[in-house]
Design a protein around this nucleic acid. Structure first.
Length: 587
RNA sequence: UACCCCGUAGUGUAAUGGUAACACUAGGGAUUUUGAUUCCCUCAUUCUAGGUUCGAAUCCUAGCGGGGUAGCCA
């Protein structure tokens, strides 16, 4: 069943792409079909900007009861690797699970497992489970190039890269024709075949479209269709020494797959006339290219080059560092695909070049995890408290709900003992009026336990508070202003907890002063490792890859890589909203 | 300096010729055994100037501002 709008219900806001598709369907274009795709180059890991594109394309296909392809635009063997193909498939599958998709795409074998020939558009379901590869179309692309040559629309050019740059002209000055522009069709055919057969050196010749060297759009000044490049391709191996360019490959790949709406980012706007030119000259199915603004976020950088630099120069631990806005990083941070989808829907899609506030991302994961994460208690910076009226060695079993708003999530036992830990910041000796936590002679509620009164403050020689002596009152009925979390000292689980903050300390890291780079804007406090956090004992069995809310603290994810059975390691996904820190920060 | 695209609360996105809506942030308040959650309230001369129209965020013109484009990268 499709979620396509019926027109009866009050229509939700439609973005400009949905409006285009609505109009196309109303006009009967493509027989009402909607077929989108996500076309990454396998030369790096996916990041949150790609997530926006995936959610958009996949969401559209799902909404309209259409189809969605994953296709690798692998036309530059020098940069592409199988490792990236595998990680991209994995990340895409993870993401579309947020749409309720359980099947996903199959991980592809490398070049050794020669794929069976197939018809790209044959699968009846929402997604074609085998990812597509532009490299699978190399033979067809070659044939089409020959066709263009025969039609006098393409020629072999002998200009070097530098010469070609000179001939291209500038943004304001027209280019001039290549001396080879008027070769005969027969000669072009022969030379192109020789290019393919490895008769020429790398870079010595190209196949170019014959369009218009004086076009105000530089992309139309006889763009390169094929270049000679002897490189091992991750799929086609050494079969080819000429490779098609992006412009020559992308639209035709869309066409072969029966794509109806080819959605890409704004920088390809100037390429659209070329996209259209190829489909028209070749007389093939003509998808519509639509451009939207890529995602920008505050406190983040998004370019592949910069992300790569962060990894290579070890400013982060790797592509999956939880501070990275790569899909892998977000996954390890504890983000859920549902939250990612909600985020992508909320930010919308338009042509305006915008920057989304990072708070929106945090809000999306909080909203999701608030619903589903079971609660627990964890003390990050422990302060010992002795409950003087409790017996030594006595353990009181208390019942704690796993979710205050959802009783169906059940409850767990937490032990109370004479010695407990509370958070250092939950005690203040000289507390301001609005400080609702523990202070000398003051009272505070221990979550799910009872009320304690602070009788004595113990300090070391340096005057640092080392211990509190309190009286415990199990009576729950009294009203006290503050409630704090706590953990049994002797029974606590000591665990490593990693506290993450924005990777960059400023809203726009790229806005670096003269002589500085975005790296100078790194936040030195983006990672704090707490090696001896004290957690309630039930967390000992927390399974890897699950999320918890440590009450009053934040959402934490059991790290899938570093956790061992019985020894979980927690990554903080997000803090809870905290109006006290704001309040106390004021003068 | 050429061409293309874009300008609506602090940030985003709606309203598609009928008098600016929703979300996040921020600031107030209520509830609360998480200072969480939840719930209320507050925050805009739609970049500017002309024009078309009974009526313009929407259409036209000019200006201003922002972004993109000169790889044999994608």
């Amino acid at each position: 069943m499709s979620d396509a709008p019926t027109g009866n219900e009050k229509s939700a806001p439609r973005n400009f792409i949905q409006q285009i598709i609505d109009a196309d369907r109303a006009a009967g274009k493509n027989g009402g079909r909607v077929h989108t795709r996500f076309p990454p180059e396998p030369n790096g890991y996916l990041h949150i900007g790609h997530a926006k594109s995936i959610c958009l394309n996949f969401g559209l296909a799902k909404e309209y009861g259409g189809k969605f392809n994953l296709r690798f635009d692998d036309t530059n063997p020098a940069k592409e690797e199988q490792e990236y193909v595998d990680s991209i498939v994995d990340d895409v599958n993870w993401l579309i699970a947020g749409f309720g998709e359980t099947e996903g795409f199959r991980v592809q074998g490398s070049e050794n497992s020669s794929p069976a020939p197939r018809t790209p558009n044959a699968e009846p379901s929402l997604l074609n489970p085998e990812p597509f590869f532009a490299s699978d179309y190399f033979d067809q692309l070659y044939a089409w190039a020959t066709q263009l040559i025969k039609g006098g629309k393409a020629y072999v050019c002998d200009l070097t890269a530098e010469q070609m740059r000179e001939y291209r002209g500038t943004l304001t000055a027209p280019g001039k024709d290549s001396p080879n522009r008027n070769r005969t069709i027969a000669e072009n055919l022969e030379l192109f075949a020789q290019m393919r057969d490895g008769k020429f050196a790398d870079g010595s010749r190209t196949l170019r479209a014959k369009i218009d060297m004086a076009s105000p759009n530089v992309n139309m000044r006889d763009p390169v269709l094929y270049r000679i490049k002897r490189a091992h391709h991750h799929r086609t191996g050494d079969k080819w020494c000429i490779y098609p360019s992006y412009d020559y490959t992308h639209g035709q790949s869309d066409s072969i797959e029966g794509i109806t709406h080819s959605i890409c980012t704004l920088e390809f706007e100037n390429h659209r006339p070329l996209y259209d030119w190829f489909c028209r000259e070749l007389g093939i199915h003509h998808p519509q290219q639509i451009e939207f603004a890529r995602l920008n976020l505050t406190y983040a950088v998004m370019s592949k080059r910069k992300l790569l630099q962060l990894v290579q120069e070890k400013h982060v631990a790797g592509w999956d560092d939880p501070r990275m806005l790569t899909i892998r990083g977000l996954r390890r941070r504890g983000y859920t695909p549902e939250a990612m989808r909600a985020f992508c829907e909320r930010i919308g899609v338009a042509k305006f070049n915008s920057t989304i506030d990072m708070a929106w991302l945090e809000d999306a994961i909080r909203e999701d995890l608030n619903e589903r994460a079971p609660r627990g208690m964890g003390v990050l910076r422990p302060l010992k408290v002795v409950l003087a009226n409790l017996k030594e060695g006595e353990t009181i079993e208390l019942d704690a709900p796993n979710h205050p708003q959802q009783p169906e999530m059940g409850s767990r036992k937490i032990p109370l003992t004479r010695e407990i830990f509370i958070e250092q910041e939950d005690f203040m000796e000289d507390a301001p009026k609005k400080f609702f936590r523990l202070k000398p002679a003051g009272e505070v509620r221990l979550r799910c336990a009872g009320i304690i009164k602070c009788d004595e403050v113990v300090k070391d020689a340096a005057g640092k508070v080392t211990e509190l002596r309190c009286t415990f009152d199990p009576d729950h009925s009294r009203k006290v202003k503050g409630t704090i979390h706590w953990v049994s000292a002797p029974l606590a689980l000591t665990a490593e907890v990693r506290l993450y903050d924005h990777l960059f300390g400023v809203e726009n890291p790229d806005n670096a002063p003269e002589g500085k780079t975005f790296l100078d804007n790194l936040n030195p406090n983006s990672l704090e490792v707490v090696t001896d956090a004290k957690l309630e004992p039930s967390l000992k069995d927390a399974s890897a890859g699950t999320s918890f809310q440590f009450e009053r603290s934040g959402y934490f994810f059991v790290d899938p890589l570093d956790s061992k059975p019985g020894r979980p390691v927690f990554n903080r996904t997000a803090t809870l909203r905290d109006s006290w820190t704001k309040e106390s920060g004021r003068d």
